[in-house]
């Protein structure tokens, strides 16, 4: 069986598992929207928030929602020998990671779209000045964030504190990404003179690094 076919089968498997479990939807999205509401209350309605703040609030909720959704994801694979089955797949083991990344990205993107709608409604924000940039940054940030959080979820799967460890390990690792997506979101929300290319480069470098790291390091993580 070719690597590509295995990849698509693994993507399908992860999509089905996530669709049945609805973990990202029920816990991640609900948590993210709840966080938005709490922040809206804490910031006193927050309708006049400057772009710097509102972009930060939005991404903070996306980060927490993703981390919450990812916590304990790999636990299900350990049940009923599913992990052993994955180990038997006749392909490079990093492909298991890439397939999971692709499948989870679809769910995180969908959850993020719902969060963005909730954000504009709850915070009464004007629509972004550059909608194309805004959509691109949200999508790229979600995909990169899913990559690193999937990796961290696998890393902490063997830990007794996995639920708390995912956010604890994820946030320091994701801070360059966090800074880049916030600056680019601010650029898409308000008038600015020039494109902040340095943050585009940071985002691209970060995504490239997490494209490469699992290929090098995912195999030892999968050992029983």
């Amino acid at each position: 069986m070719s690597g590509l076919r295995v990849f698509f089968r693994l993507v399908r498997k992860d999509l089905v598992v996530e669709f049945r479990g609805k973990r990202l939807w029920t816990s991640g999205l609900a948590f993210g929207v709840l966080l938005l509401v709490v922040m809206g209350i804490a910031l006193n309605g927050a309708s006049g928030l400057p772009a710097d703040w509102s972009a930060g609030v939005l991404w903070l909720c996306v980060f927490f929602a993703t981390a919450q959704g990812m916590s304990g994801r790999d636990r299900h694979d350990g049940e009923m020998g599913a992990w052993d089955g994955l180990m038997l797949a006749p392909v490079d083991r990093s492909l298991v990671f890439y397939a999971r990344w692709a499948a989870l990205s679809a769910f995180v993107l969908a959850a993020e779209a719902a969060l963005v709608v909730a954000f504009f409604v709850i915070f009464n924000q004007p629509p972004p000045l550059r909608p194309g940039w805004f959509a691109g940054v949200m999508a790229a940030g979600a995909v990169a964030l899913t990559g690193v959080s999937s990796f961290v979820a696998t890393l902490s799967a063997a830990s007794a504190m996995r639920d708390i460890l995912v956010p604890v390990l994820l946030f320091p690792l994701a801070i360059p990404l966090f800074l880049a997506v916030i600056r680019l979101t601010v650029f898409s929300l308000q008038p600015a003179w020039s494109v902040p290319w340095v943050w585009v480069e940071v985002l691209a470098a970060y995504a490239a690094a997490f494209l490469l790291v699992p290929w090098l390091l995912f195999e030892p993580l999968m050992e029983v």
Partner: peptide, 27 residues
């Protein structure tokens, strides 16, 4: 600090060493 939390919460000497090594490389 996360590296030590990870180490402290994984049972099994070899598994702990393996997972910690991966995180140390990324960190």
């Amino acid at each position: 600090a996360g590296y030590f939390l990870l180490r402290a919460s994984i049972d099994g000497r070899e598994r702990r060493a393996r997972v910690s090594a991966v995180f140390a490389i990324v960190a």
